[in-house]
Simulated assay, not measured.
Amino acid sequence: MTDLNVDGMALAPGVVETIVSIAVGEVEGVASVGSSAAGGLRSVFAAKPSTQGIDITVDDEDKLHVAIRVDVYYGYALPDIAAKLRQAVADAVSSQVGAQVGSVDVYIDGMQFAR
């Protein structure tokens, strides 16, 4: 994603991804954003949330299209988690950035059994 301009404010590429990552991490049942296998030690010692597994594009109407890849905990209804993720991401981006979200695609890449 290149710089996003919203109401005369330019946002660097990592800003929106970080907002999305935090919103996703707050949804109950989500174990990790991105592949848990790829996170490794870097994610343990990182100062900010990982934006791996988040892809954001902007269409011709300046709407954001977000794709997120997550691992979830066993025991949660997957359609419910996906719906909560879509809502959390749309709300976070709308309230913190002021941009419209055209779509949020959720990809569940794995499941974890222990908490």
Rank of each mutant, 00 (worst) to 15 (best):
Y76V: 07
L4N: 04
R115L: 13
T18E: 12
M111S: 10
R86L: 08
K63L: 12
V58M: 09
V58I: 13
D7W: 03
K63T: 13
L11F: 15
A67N: 07
A83V: 08
V58T: 15
E61H: 11
D55Y: 07
G53D: 07
V89F: 00
Y107R: 12
V6P: 01
A77Y: 06
G102I: 02
V30L: 03
E61W: 04
K48S: 14
D109C: 05
S43E: 14
G39Q: 13
I56Q: 00
V27C: 02
A67V: 12
G39M: 10
D80L: 08
A12G: 13
T18W: 02
V20W: 00
V93G: 01
A83W: 06
A31G: 06
S43Q: 12
E28T: 10
G39K: 11
V70N: 00
V24P: 01
L78D: 05
M111P: 05
D109P: 06
M1K: 11
A83R: 11
S94Q: 13
S32A: 15
V106L: 06
G40F: 02
G39W: 04
A67C: 08
D109H: 08
V15H: 05
V104W: 00
A82V: 10
L64K: 01
M9C: 09
A88E: 03
V89I: 13
L4D: 03
I22K: 09
S103R: 09
S95W: 06
Q112R: 14
D7H: 11
G40A: 02
L64A: 02
I68L: 04
V20H: 00
I22E: 11
V97P: 04
M1C: 09
I68E: 02
R115T: 11
I56P: 00
G53L: 06
V33I: 15
Y107S: 14
I68H: 04
A83P: 05
S32D: 11
S36M: 10
D55W: 06
I54M: 01
V6Q: 02
D60L: 08
Q112E: 15
V15K: 05
K84N: 14
G39I: 08
A77R: 10
A12F: 09
M9G: 04
G102K: 04
Q87I: 11
D91Y: 04
V24Q: 03
H65A: 03
I54H: 01
Y76A: 08
V72E: 01
Y73V: 08
V27H: 00
R69D: 14
V66K: 01
V30T: 00
D62W: 02
G39N: 11
